[in-house]
C-alpha cells in the first residue's frame, strides 16, 4: 500500500497481485462454520473456544447500535489488534459502505476479511468500495440476486444475505435467502436468449447472470446473517442454502454466551440431524430479546442500506 495515490478510486496500490482465487479460497475454508460478532478480546476468546470459525471485530454489536443510535464506524484499531493477538482463527472487521479509506486501514492491519456492512452508517450513498485492489477479501450483504451480483462485480469474495441485524428476528434472513435462491432457480429455467432481459431486470452484469443461469449458484460462497439468535435459526439458514452463518448480537446478548455459542456451532454443522439439534437446543440460557418487524420503521431497517 506504500504507493497509494489516493485517487479516489479506492485503489490499494500494489495489492492487485492478490488474486481473486485466494480470496474466495478463504471463504471456502469458512464454510460450515459460525462467524461471531465480538467487541473485545475476551469475547473473541470465548468465540474461539466455542468453535467459531472466525470472529468479526466491531465497536458495538448491532442491537446496541440500534438502541444507542449515532454514527456507527469501523472498530478502533487497538481493539482489532488485541483481538488479532488473542485468537488464531480469522479476524474480520466491518467498514462503512463506500468508505475505502477505512478499508485501507483494515487491509494494512492484515485483517483476514473486510465486511462492507450496512450495519455501520453508510459513508457513500452511491458507490460501494472497489474491492478488487485490496489484499484482504471482502464480504458484502445482499437482499436479492441482483444486489449479490452487483457486489460480486465490484470484487466481493463472499456474499451474506443481510437479514435484519440486531433484531433477533430471523424473518428477514429467511426472506433474503428464499429470494436469492428462488431467483437463481428461476434463472435456470430460462432459455439462453431470455437471460439478457433478466439481467437487465436484476440490474446485474450479464456475464455473471449467465454464469448463475448455467451453474445454479453464486460464483462465490453464500452465507447468511442478520437476526440469527438460536441454534434452530442457524439450522434453518443452512437448510435454506446458506453455507455458513454470521451471528451478531444473538450470542453476547444472551444469558450464557459460551453455551449458546457452542450450541449454534453444533447446529450449524449438524443442521439436518434432528437428534443433534435437540441436544443443541437443550440447556440454553435466556435468548436475546427480539423485535417484531412491524414495529421497526423503514428508516430503522439496516437492510435497506446499500443498493
Amino acid at each position: 500500500m506504500s504507493d497509494q495515490t489516493g485517487n479516489g478510486n479506492g485503489g490499494a496500490g500494489d495489492a492487485t497481485a492478490k488474486s481473486f482465487e485466494l480470496k474466495v479460497g478463504l471463504a471456502e475454508m469458512l464454510k460450515g462454520g459460525v462467524i461471531m460478532d465480538v467487541v473485545n478480546p475476551d469475547q473473541a476468546k470465548i468465540a474461539e473456544d466455542s468453535g467459531a470459525c472466525a470472529v468479526m471485530a466491531l465497536e458495538r454489536v448491532p442491537s446496541d447500535i440500534r438502541r444507542d443510535g449515532g454514527v456507527a464506524r469501523m472498530c478502533q484499531v487497538e481493539i482489532i489488534e488485541s483481538i488479532q493477538r488473542t485468537v488464531s482463527i480469522p479476524v474480520m472487521a466491518k467498514v462503512r459502505i463506500g468508505h475505502y479509506l477505512e478499508a485501507q486501514v483494515l487491509d494494512a492491519l492484515g485483517v483476514d476479511f473486510i465486511d462492507e456492512s450496512e450495519v455501520l452508517t453508510p459513508a457513500d450513498e452511491e458507490h460501494h468500495v472497489d474491492k478488487f485492489p485490496f489484499r484482504s477479501p471482502f464480504v458484502c450483504g445482499a437482499r436479492d440476486l441482483g444486489e449479490a451480483l452487483r457486489r460480486i462485480s465490484e470484487g466481493a469474495a463472499m456474499i451474506r444475505t443481510k437479514g435484519e441485524a440486531g433484531s433477533g428476528n430471523i424473518v428477514e434472513a429467511v426472506r433474503h435467502l428464499r429470494t436469492v435462491f428462488g431467483q437463481m432457480r428461476s434463472l435456470q429455467a430460462l432459455l439462453p436468449e431470455e437471460v439478457p432481459a433478466r439481467a437487465k431486470e436484476l440490474r446485474a452484469p450479464l456475464d455473471l447472470v449467465q454464469r448463475v443461469a448455467e451453474t445454479g449458484k453464486l460464483p462465490v460462497p453464500n452465507f447468511a446473517a442478520g437476526g440469527i439468535a438460536t441454534p434452530a435459526d442457524a439450522a434453518l439458514c443452512r437448510s435454506l442454502g446458506a453455507e455458513a452463518v454470521f451471528v451478531g448480537s444473538g450470542i453476547f446478548k444472551s444469558g450464557d454466551p459460551a453455551v449458546l455459542a457452542r450450541a449454534i456451532v453444533r447446529a450449524t454443522t449438524h443442521w439436518d440431524e434432528p437428534e443433534e439439534l435437540v441436544a443443541a437446543c437443550r440447556g440454553l440460557g435466556k435468548p436475546m430479546e427480539g423485535i417484531e418487524m412491524e414495529t421497526l420503521a423503514e428508516s430503522q431497517r439496516l437492510a435497506n442500506r446499500g443498493w
Binding site: K18, E21, L22, L26, P90, D107, G110, V111, F113, P137
Partner: peptide, 23 residues
C-alpha cells in the same frame, strides 16, 4: 494472515504442481 496467502509452483516429483496456500 490472509493478506499473506499466496499461490506458487511447488518443487518435487509432481512437475508443475500449482499450489494455493491460504493462511
Amino acid at each position: 494472515t490472509q493478506v499473506d496467502s499466496f499461490a506458487t509452483v511447488a518443487q518435487g516429483e509432481l512437475e508443475g504442481l500449482r499450489a494455493i496456500f491460504i493462511r
